[in-house]
Design a binder for these strands. Sequence first.
DNA 1: TTTTCCGCTTTGTCCGACAAACGGTCTCAT
DNA 2: ATGAGACCGTTTGTCGGACAAAGCGGAAAA
Lengths: 258, 258
Amino acid sequence: MSDTIADRFDRIRVPSAYEMVAEAIEAEIVSGRLRPGDEIGTEAALVRQFGVNRSTVREGIRVLEQGGLVRREAGRKLFVCEPRYDALSSRMSRALVLQDVTFRELFDTALILEVGAVEGAVAHADEEIIAALEANQSRIEQAIGNPVLLSEIDTEFHALVAHASRNRVLELAREPAALLFFPSSEMICRRVPEGGPRMVEAHRRIIDAIKARDLDGARLWMRRHLVDWRKGFVRAGREIDAPVERIFARYALSRSAL
Amino acid sequence: MSDTIADRFDRIRVPSAYEMVAEAIEAEIVSGRLRPGDEIGTEAALVRQFGVNRSTVREGIRVLEQGGLVRREAGRKLFVCEPRYDALSSRMSRALVLQDVTFRELFDTALILEVGAVEGAVAHADEEIIAALEANQSRIEQAIGNPVLLSEIDTEFHALVAHASRNRVLELAREPAALLFFPSSEMICRRVPEGGPRMVEAHRRIIDAIKARDLDGARLWMRRHLVDWRKGFVRAGREIDAPVERIFARYALSRSAL
DNA sequence: TTTTCCGCTTTGTCCGACAAACGGTCTCAT
DNA sequence: ATGAGACCGTTTGTCGGACAAAGCGGAAAA
């Protein structure tokens, strides 16, 4: 009857037992009383503690596993995860693909994030990560002509730059986009082979700029590197406003989901 | 014995039945054969189709639910989700908190993302979203002095700006950080009351810049707005290099996780 | 000491069952 | 005819018990 006026109250949700199991364990983890690496008891122990059936416990565990809070070590005991978000990122990527986001959205965002990452790298890169970048560079120089390897090493390069920024929030934020963005560079390398040397040069310049703490140079070359990607994408005959193919998504997912 | 040389092969993972159930349904969704809003059969029907036990089906469903692919409509039938990622974002935020990321990391990333968002908004904002921004503005002007309301409307403002960019990848990328970042502005509003008017002015300038397609102005005022946040944070007596408190995380989580 | 074997534990799966909640239908009074 | 309410089949959430296979640890054998 009162369809015309806005409802004052939300639907009451009675939490089910398996949700409460999951939340109870989650609370222990978030509060820090359970630390990464700690082991959670066996299913039987949880059955005893919570006083519910094992099926119920198991459903709760599935929820936590999927949320990346706990992990099963080789099919055996349950451990609290050291926080990683690979699995979460790939699920994010999947959500993006299901929304039919376009390559343009992907590109625009990657531009923002990768430039931001390289700025952070200029400010915070230490010897160790620079060594890793150099190692990456020497590998990529030998991979010219091999699209699969090239795009793989390029992906690693960008991950390293992000890591060099010493900003884990930024590292996380770029991951879902990166997961969709860089796989398609394999296709580009395959169809636009002359892009390889340009990529290698851009990486070289970016690394040098990071070493020299040259903010403008780093920004410039990262931007140029990504614009090259877009040019290659178009020259490969792809439409920038087309939605990201689900093919790529499956690729990205299968690569990351352990 | 051969502990000294690197293992050539990865561990073989035999997928369990519930995982295969989840993957089979996921494949249907990702491939588009199941579309958002479509309903998946009852548990009994899935039991028939997959030839496994109901417990197994149920565990598979939990995985999908947690991954945001399917949803239970008011405790009843199973539907394919229209892609949303609220739940995923909050899980991302949780991962960040568990890693003890600092407010500085949060701030640096938010600066990059929010400036990027407002650049996109200048380029793509349409009448409708500008109207929404104006509505938000008129509400915030009346909320000065009310920290809870103020930070709530501020959060909405930034979400609107991101939405105005018409870039769903960017919208997604900023969400985990935003979920942690903006709740703490309530604390700031409470302890540094003079920040309220500055916030209202910054929003005003940003909206005007978006309407005037004034890229530099938009960038400038967004940057200023966030730097104000940091100043307020410090003046509230907080340490910018301290890890984000888990208190905030719980807050962010409970707000978003339906 | 190293390898092999054996039994215990734990997980993954199955079966069957029941109460509560829900959806749809049917009846009855207005 | 129409709306309210009772009735009944369906579906979910939970339970108890069961078993095979895989992993683990310790005992026995080389």
